[in-house]
Amino acid sequence: MRNLSGLMDRQGRIETKASGQQTNGQPAKGWAPVWSGPAAKKDESQASETQDGKQMVATGRTTWTIRYQAGITPMMRFVDESASPEVIYNIEGVTEVGRREALSLQTRRTNV
């Protein structure tokens, strides 16, 4: 088993889309936290800008490594709590590292 704790020098949070209803009967909107803890960050590509319609969109790929946590899916997002302000990454892929040792999250940062 590898010692990953020295590499995990960031604090992160994983969120899932909120579901259910508010007390007034309206559908719940927003995101709900499902995990929070240390993470390692590895930038895979330089940020680039593309034009999406009339807006410029900055994107960049980053791989995050966290301790193993069951149930993490690409329908969720990763929030870098170490950044100020916090930075949001869409999870595009999840890969198990070792035997339930860690998860590698392939993400893309998008700022509009």
Rank of each mutant, 00 (worst) to 15 (best):
M1H: 05
R2K: 14
R2E: 07
R2L: 10
N3F: 14
L4C: 02
S5A: 12
S5H: 15
G6Y: 07
L7Q: 07
M8G: 08
M8T: 10
D9H: 02
R10D: 05
Q11E: 06
G12L: 09
G12M: 04
R13D: 00
R13H: 00
I14L: 10
E15V: 09
T16V: 03
K17E: 15
K17Y: 04
K17L: 13
K17Q: 13
S19G: 07
S19W: 06
T23H: 10
T23I: 12
T23G: 05
N24H: 00
G25D: 08
G25S: 13
G25N: 04
Q26T: 08
Q26E: 13
P27L: 14
A28T: 09
A28F: 01
A28I: 03
K29N: 08
K29C: 00
G30R: 11
P33D: 11
V34R: 04
S36M: 06
G37Y: 02
G37E: 05
G37F: 02
G37A: 04
P38T: 07
P38N: 07
A39Q: 02
A39S: 09
A40Y: 07
K41S: 06
E44S: 13
S45Q: 03
S45D: 14
S45P: 03
S45L: 11
Q46C: 04
Q46Y: 09
A47Y: 04
A47G: 15
A47F: 02
S48H: 07
S48N: 11
T50L: 13
Q51P: 05
Q51Y: 09
Q51G: 08
D52A: 06
D52E: 15
G53C: 01
G53L: 03
K54H: 09
M56Q: 15
M56C: 07
M56R: 14
V57E: 06
V57T: 04
V57S: 06
A58V: 08
G60W: 00
G60M: 09
R61Y: 06
R61Q: 12
R61L: 13
R61F: 10
R61D: 14
T62R: 00
T63K: 08
W64S: 02
W64A: 00
T65P: 04
R67Q: 08
R67I: 02
Y68F: 10
Y68L: 02
Y68W: 14
Q69A: 13
Q69D: 02
Q69H: 14
A70P: 14
A70S: 09
A70R: 10
G71H: 06
G71M: 01
G71N: 12
I72A: 04
T73D: 03
T73A: 08
T73R: 07
P74M: 05
M75H: 10
M75W: 09
M76G: 03
R77C: 05
V79M: 05
E81Y: 01
S82W: 02
A83N: 11
A83D: 15
E86D: 12
V87L: 05
V87P: 00
V87W: 00
I88L: 03
Y89A: 13
I91A: 01
I91C: 06
G93P: 00
T95L: 13
T95P: 01
E96I: 12
V97G: 05
G98L: 06
R99M: 15
E101N: 07
E101Q: 14
A102W: 08
A102G: 11
A102K: 01
A102Y: 02
A102Q: 10
L103K: 08
L103N: 12
L103C: 07
S104Y: 11
L105Y: 04
L105R: 01
T107R: 02
R108M: 15
R109L: 15
N111K: 11
N111M: 11
V112F: 10
V112T: 07
